[in-house]
């Protein structure tokens, strides 16, 4: 038998792209469990239906692009996109809303640009923003958390998804909404008046954020990504909240802790900002990228017109990532700092 002739290195490490994606999927479980506990089965139904649509879209795109189906479906990237988008959608979303969002994410944001690795924008966030702009009513209809309203059961959740006309679920403003709409009450009074607020932020939200933080910490421990971008984002957001926190007047933007544990903060920091494809790559670049997202999240949350801001902040910084990379090349061994930046 002829000897094989290939070039070095001949050994390969244990990591694979499929494993990276699987790890990310596993790390979302704590957050999904907490969301389900506080808001019912809506999120899980979202994810299951979203995954089916995502795999179908991925397969369609691969077929149209004449790529081998098995090889590319095995990388689990479509499932990750579906899971991330469906976690971000309000529970009990109708089937068509999810389908439109997933199709935008997989077909528009990913495969039109050349598939995995070539997309300049985070597909899940593109899908989210398409829906937010197109269907603002459905997208801002969050269910009341456990203890505040009645939680629908599994059957009702399925009904909400597939026969939305027959489903009559209660919806409620989120804590972030409440704080933004408020212009007459001190934060302390608002807190007392609204049943949605919990210990540090919204009921359910605070625990969901902590659960996503736990999942992110596990990914950090597994070295799936580095700490730079997520921690920079959290620091940027907390810093902005601390700077503009006036102690609780009616015009207050909210405390740093409130912002860290509200909305999609932790989910965004550890599952969206860390998307390697669309973020900056150098260490310094990731610090800048993350911090800028944190700052933008605060500005859009407090000054913007939308209830949450992670998706917009991430998309804006996706634009900037190549620019940041260009100016943050690390100093190569044996070079003086700055000489590479021509």
């Amino acid at each position: 038998m002829a000897l094989m002739r290939i070039t070095s290195p001949h050994a390969h490490g244990p990591m694979s792209t499929s494993k990276v994606m699987l790890n990310v999927l596993l790390a979302t479980i704590p957050g999904i469990v907490v969301l389900t506990h506080f808001f019912g089965f809506g999120t899980i139904v979202n994810i299951l239906w979203g995954s089916v649509v995502a795999l179908a879209c991925e397969a369609l795109a691969l077929k149209l692009r004449r790529r081998p189906l098995g090889f590319y479906l095995k990388d689990y990237s479509a499932l990750v996109t579906a899971t991330l988008l469906c976690v971000a959608l309000p529970p009990y979303s109708p089937w068509w809303l999810i389908a439109v969002g997933i199709a935008s994410a997989i077909l528009l944001a990913k495969h039109l640009y050349g598939g995995l690795g070539y997309n300049p924008f985070n597909p899940a966030m593109v899908g989210y923003v398409v829906l937010l702009i197109s269907f603002p009513i459905q997208m801002t209809a969050w269910a009341p958390p456990r203890g505040v309203g009645e939680l629908p059961g599994l059957m009702q959740a399925l009904q909400a998804c597939f026969t939305p006309a027959a489903f009559d679920g209660a919806t409620m403003a989120t804590p972030l909404d409440l704080l933004k709409q408020n212009n007459s009450l001190l934060v302390k009074d608002l807190w007392r008046q609204s049943p949605q607020f919990g210990r540090w932020a919204g009921i359910g939200w605070e625990w969901a954020n902590l659960a996503f933080l736990a999942g992110g910490a596990w990914l950090l421990y597994r070295r799936i990504f580095t700490w730079h971008a997520p921690l920079a984002m959290l620091a940027g957001l907390a810093l902005m909240a601390a700077l503009f926190n006036d102690g609780g007047s009616s015009a207050s933007g909210g405390s740093p802790l409130f912002h860290l544990l509200s909305g999609a903060t932790m989910f965004g920091a550890f599952f969206i900002v860390t998307d390697p494809v669309t973020s900056a790559v150098s260490v310094r670049g990731r610090l800048i990228y993350g911090a800028m997202i944190g700052i933008l999240v605060y500005i859009i949350r407090v000054r913007g017109n939308y209830p949450d801001a992670v998706a917009f902040a991430v998309l804006i910084m996706n634009f900037a990532a190549p620019f940041i990379d260009y100016y943050t090349q690390p100093r190569t061994y044996g070079h003086q700092r700055g000489e590479g930046e021509k």
């Binding site: 094989m4 290939i6 001949h10 050994a11 390969h12 990591m15 694979s16 792209t17 990276v20 090889f71 990388d75 990237s77 598939g115 995995l116 690795g117 070539y118 990504f225 580095t226 390697p276 494809v277 973020s279 790559v281 150098s282 990731r286």
Partner: peptide, 15 residues
């Protein structure tokens, strides 16, 4: 030392 499998897309993970 297994024969290398086909390369997948670069996801710019930065590892």
């Amino acid at each position: 030392l297994p024969t290398p499998t086909p390369a997948q897309a670069c996801i710019r993970c930065g590892m």
